[in-house]
Design a protein around this nucleic acid. Structure first.
Lengths: 228, 228
DNA sequence: GTCTATAAGGCGATAGAC
DNA sequence: GTCTATCGCCTTATAGAC
């Protein structure tokens, strides 16, 4: 997985050993995701996380100086992996925006640990002192601004009805996605989160676009883009 | 503090001390709500809850035989207080249904501890072993069936468009309410949860009812019904 | 880089005094 | 009904050996 196929120079060797450290780091982070999903932050234990990563608690604290450091490292990596580069490509239409979000939902449905972790942490993080509070405040701001910008562009293109409040609608979309995720987490095998979200987007498109057309029958954009 | 100022008959004395016990019980439950809100279940501590209730940990465990017993007692009482009798009165229209739900959102916004507790617990409870897992599974079933029934009635009355899937729409409504609640919890003083929900219901009514009319300007049903 | 050992304290639950 | 005391276990973080 970490093929640093080097040549000769020292630097490369150093890079090599660094890459090994990164691999251990990654194992710890993977284990931490599962534990934060199951226990939340406060009730997770470094020793149990370390054990799942094949290391001792003391060894873990060589890579992360504290439990809180581990948490923010997990959150940062998770954001880099997943849908934050969601807004990298400019969408050509609001339909494309929604298809990208459907793809994100499918991506989340395939990663129960990661997704349940967000459910558990965002609930805990409501309290102001929580170590992830600021992270989630910033995250919602970013997500809502991102979706809001695309909606505003769609209004300006004349695609979406002029009266629409882009930011309010973006917050609503984020709420639907989060809320469906909570329901899905209670029965991940039987709950069709993506289907539910598609139904929502379909009706939303009919009521909010100028031409009043819903989502295309079963277009692309929902496959896992498998970024990691 | 324990003024069982009894007369002679046993029964009355027993009832009297029982009422006092209930008052203490209530204090413990109130404290527990705040702690579960801030820490979730696993990371909350009986000793700290007891301290806030003006009692010791040992004393607390006289009223609740275990931490898990305390949790389910909290959840049960909270459900009895809040919007479970939501469906007591038959609504005359889907507008009325939505106004009742707006009232519930306003009720929740006035009780940050209780509401944040639900955010924290429903996130944790995604995992199957969690002591509140079954509670939340049952709760969503009940809520979605309740809202779904009212929507189905509205379809049968010819108020809502025939093609509508009542249960799917009910799940969507629950998702929006939960998702908005997560965002609200991050900034309860500045986030207009009820306004956001009203905007959602308004657009939903326009797209899903036969006559396509939105929500009335600012009708009743949103005041706190102050049931406790 | 990983280990063991340990410090210093919190946890839930039980037992028994009053 | 509430207290104190206690059991056995778990917690994060640090120190130092290898």
């Amino acid at each position: 997985m970490d093929r640093t196929q080097d040549g000769k120079p020292r630097r490369t060797a150093a890079r090599g050993s660094y890459a090994v450290g990164d691999e251990r780091r990654a194992r710890i982070l993977d284990a931490a995701v599962e534990h934060f999903a199951q226990w939340g932050f406060h009730a997770s234990s470094l020793a149990r996380i370390a054990k799942d990563a094949g290391i001792t608690q003391g060894g873990l604290l060589h890579h992360f100086r504290s439990k809180e450091d581990l948490l923010i490292s997990v959150l940062r990596r998770t954001d880099e992996q997943g849908g934050v580069r969601l807004f990298a490509r400019e969408p050509q239409s609001v339909v494309e925006t929604f298809q990208t979000l459907l793809g994100l939902a499918a991506y989340n449905a395939e990663r129960p640990g990661r997704t349940k972790m967000f459910n558990a942490l965002v609930g805990e993080a409501g309290e102001r002192g929580h170590p992830a509070h600021d992270f989630f405040v910033g995250r919602y701001r970013m997500v809502i601004e991102g979706i809001g910008r695309e909606l505003r562009d769609a209004v300006e293109r004349g695609e979406v009805k002029p009266g629409t409040d882009p930011e309010a609608l973006a917050a609503e979309i984020a709420a639907v996605m989060d809320g469906l995720q909570l329901q899905w987490a209670l029965a991940p095998e039987t709950y069709d989160m993506v289907g539910r979200l598609r139904a929502y987007f379909d009706r939303l498109l009919r009521s909010v676009t100028v031409d009043g057309v819903g989502l295309p029958e079963r277009s692309g954009g929902e496959e896992d883009r498998s970024e990691n």
